[in-house]
Design a protein around this nucleic acid. Sequence first.
DNA 1: CTTCCCTGCTCGTCTATACGAGTATGCCTC
DNA 2: GAGGCATACTCGTATAGACGAGCAGGGAAG
Lengths: 262, 262
Amino acid sequence: MAALPAGVLGTLDPTSDRAVFRQIADQLREAIDKGRFKEGAKLPSESELVDHFGVSRMTVRNALSILQSEGLISSEHGKGVFVRPRPPVRRLASDRFARRHRDQGKSAFTVEAEAAGSRPEVDSLEVKEERSTPEISARLGSARKVLARRRRYLLDGRPVEFATSYLPLDLARGTQIAEPNPGPGGIYARLEELGHRLDHFDEEVRARMPSPGEVKALRLSSGVPVIHLVRTAYDTEGRAVEVCDTVMAADAYVLAYQLPAT
Amino acid sequence: MAALPAGVLGTLDPTSDRAVFRQIADQLREAIDKGRFKEGAKLPSESELVDHFGVSRMTVRNALSILQSEGLISSEHGKGVFVRPRPPVRRLASDRFARRHRDQGKSAFTVEAEAAGSRPEVDSLEVKEERSTPEISARLGSARKVLARRRRYLLDGRPVEFATSYLPLDLARGTQIAEPNPGPGGIYARLEELGHRLDHFDEEVRARMPSPGEVKALRLSSGVPVIHLVRTAYDTEGRAVEVCDTVMAADAYVLAYQLPAT
DNA sequence: CTTCCCTGCTCGTCTATACGAGTATGCCTC
DNA sequence: GAGGCATACTCGTATAGACGAGCAGGGAAG
């Protein structure tokens, strides 16, 4: 039970009406913010903190749980508590669906990831026909049945997003869009070949805490929100030809958009 | 100590290796998801749950803290634990900075909020000259000193976002932009009058958990992330004329963007 | 009828203890 | 030296108890 490095953590103020576990959380947060504990570094163990502050273990754990819910730390069973490293973020540019990016054989995700020096993977590919939900119907028009394409994307082994594309069945059935591998340029290239020249995309962006299923699918540590993005693709005749519902680990992404001033 | 409504909550599975407090959280989450507890409804009290499940209070509190970090519930001291109501969301359209919206006397925020039937407020207005940070300088060019305009926006009394605009001092000093009230159409209208015809805006969107200061300023309940938006305005000569750093309560917003397919 | 207080509920904070399970290390055995 | 085991650390889960503080409702006092 080594003593803590001197001066890294302060002491409690017994006269304060701030709860003890909050004071401990404040101390640790400040130490992390000021770099006294670096990214990935191990924090003092619970029992060391118990000794240092002279409180019970539950109080210490309470303090740590605050920092965990803030996304500052993560604990590893049997090893310790660590300052959560900030993973590299993937930047989604607003021109990522430009036509000129659709001529390569690989998907946009793959090309972009390799350019950034990461190892991209796509798994849990599933293509099937489904009944439409009210949510999807409202965006896609009145299609009762849709083709759903589900997949999950990983960077260097870490899952970062999963997405489901919905297309009107009358449009996609029997085409290469209904195949697991939609071919070079992805489904957008196929849609254009089918005569649906794409005009624009609408994107809706929300942020929220993940459901337990999303935590599992994206292996999220606690204190990491998700970005929920719903994109609708329109052809030049104004018809909605695809809705893509994407859930992304918020610590892995920054979305970039360009807005006209006109 | 009234008994719980029959059938609303199930029982624990002692053979499961899933932790008891997780099983309790699962039960409550399912009950909320299926509408057995409606929005704003009071959940059984901690001691009722203790009796129902036959566990200690800390175990129940542990379960509740999971749901709280998921943003599903919020507790009120002395009253009980409630299903967190989903506030109305404000939709930010991608044409919100179009020139045609800049001719009214009121700010875009005010106009839009009143159209939606909400009571808008702007407070903690502060305008002052500051040293630029590396972050701002990188976007704004080499300006060493900047004009900072800070304000907080509220809807029906609830704070929903706060923002800081940074402008190069050589551009803004001595103009109406440096006044607390920048006049009709806001600072973008003034910039255009000064000869900086706006060309486009770049926006970067991130999501993360709030800092303690942000929790306070936006009165966020736990389990609510923030959307962090950094917008840079460019004039037709390609010069960055403003950087706006905005932090928004994620449960109050959905951002809408339109992307070209070309 | 109104005001005030008391009582009993609620959640918030904190202590002390116990055992289990995952991880790393070093020693002992082979 | 290699393998395996013991041990000592880590965090995870759970119990039982205590007191405090915010809130609401009922009843007593004015």
